[in-house]
Design a protein around this nucleic acid. Structure first.
Lengths: 147, 147
DNA sequence: TAGATTTAAGTTGCGCACAATTGAATTGCG
DNA sequence: CGCAATTCAATTGTGCGCAACTTAAATCTA
C-alpha cells in the first residue's frame, strides 16, 4: 500500500476543500461559513444545545466554537444563555431570524447534492460508511511515537 | 438525496480532520504540519519546483504557500532561489537536511496505511476515484447564485 | 518599441482547527 | 462538611486556506 494511502489522504483533503468552497459560494449571500452553517443545522434539527453538545457532534472544541458562536451571535442568529441549574454551561438558542433562516437556506442541500456528482443514494451511503471507517480507525491510531 | 449529501460532506470533513490529526501526531517529533509534509513529498518525488508548480499540484495559492515556505526555509529544509531566466519565478530547492529527512520520514506512509483501516488496495483505489469525482464535480458547480 | 495585459510571488486580513492554559463552578470522596 | 479532581467555556497563540490586493517582471500587441 503506502503510496495509495497517501493518495487516499490527499484526495480526502482535496475533496473536502472543494466541497467547503462550494458551501462558501452558496453561503456567500449570507456571509456564513461552512462551520457556522453546520452549527445552524444542528440547532434547526436538534433544538437548543449546550456548547459542549455542539462540540461533541461536530468534534470541535471551545477554542473553535467560542469565537464562532460569538460571530453567529453578533449576526443575531443565536443567543447564548448561561444555564441556571449549572452556571458553567452555556446554552445556544436560535433567535427568530436564526429560526427563519432555515427556510431561506433550504435550497442548499439540493445544490450540494448535485455538486457531489454521485449517481445515487446507494453510492453516497457506501462512501459515507467508508469515510466513517477511516475516521474511526484514524482516531484509534496507536501513536507509537517512533522517534 | 439532500440529507445524505450533507452527510457526505460532513463525513468528508470529519475524515479529513481525523487523518490530518494522525499526520500531525506522526510529524510532531519534527514539528512539521501535514501541508508542509506534502510540499516535502513533492520535492522528494519531483525535485525542485517553482512555487507556482507546487501550488498547482496541491491546489494552494501563494497566500498559503509563501508563509509556509518561509517556515520550511527557517527550518533549513528548503532554499528559495529566484530564477535567473525569469526573475518573477522562485524555485524551491531541498537543502541537504531536507533531502535526508526523506529517509527519516519513510515510516509515515505505512503508519498512515494502517490508520486508514482500508482492507486492500482495490478498496483504497475505489475510494480515491470516488473522491476525485467529487472534487471535480464540486469544482464545476455552476454557482447559480440564488439570492 | 511603448504601453497594456498577464503572470509570479508576496502581503494583509479573516475565520477555522487545535493545543495549551485559565477561571469558575460542580462533583466526588475522604 | 471540606478539599481535591473534574467539567465547561473562554482565551491565547500558531498555522492553514482563501479572498483581495500589491509589486515587479515578462509578454503581448498596436
Amino acid at each position: 500500500m503506502a503510496i495509495v494511502d497517501e493518495m487516499v489522504c490527499f484526495s480526502l483533503y482535496s475533496a473536502t476543500r472543494a466541497t467547503t468552497r462550494a458551501y462558501t459560494d452558496l453561503l456567500a449571500p449570507w456571509k456564513l461559513t461552512y462551520t457556522q452553517y453546520l452549527v445552524l443545522v444542528i440547532l434547526w434539527n436538534e433544538g437548543s444545545q449546550p456548547v459542549r453538545q455542539i462540540g461533541e457532534m461536530l468534534q470541535l472544541d471551545s477554542g473553535t466554537l467560542s469565537p464562532l458562536l460569538r460571530r453567529l451571535e453578533s449576526k443575531e442568529l443565536i443567543d447564548r444563555q448561561r444555564s441556571e441549574t449549572d452556571t458553567r454551561v452555556v446554552n445556544v438558542v436560535l433567535t427568530e431570524p436564526g429560526e427563519s433562516l432555515r427556510k431561506e437556506l433550504a435550497h442548499i442541500p439540493e445544490q450540494i447534492a448535485c455538486g457531489t456528482g454521485l449517481p445515487d443514494i446507494a453510492s453516497a451511503q457506501a462512501l459515507v460508511s467508508s469515510l466513517h471507517r477511516i475516521t474511526d480507525s484514524m482516531q484509534q491510531l496507536p501513536l507509537t511515537d517512533s522517534k
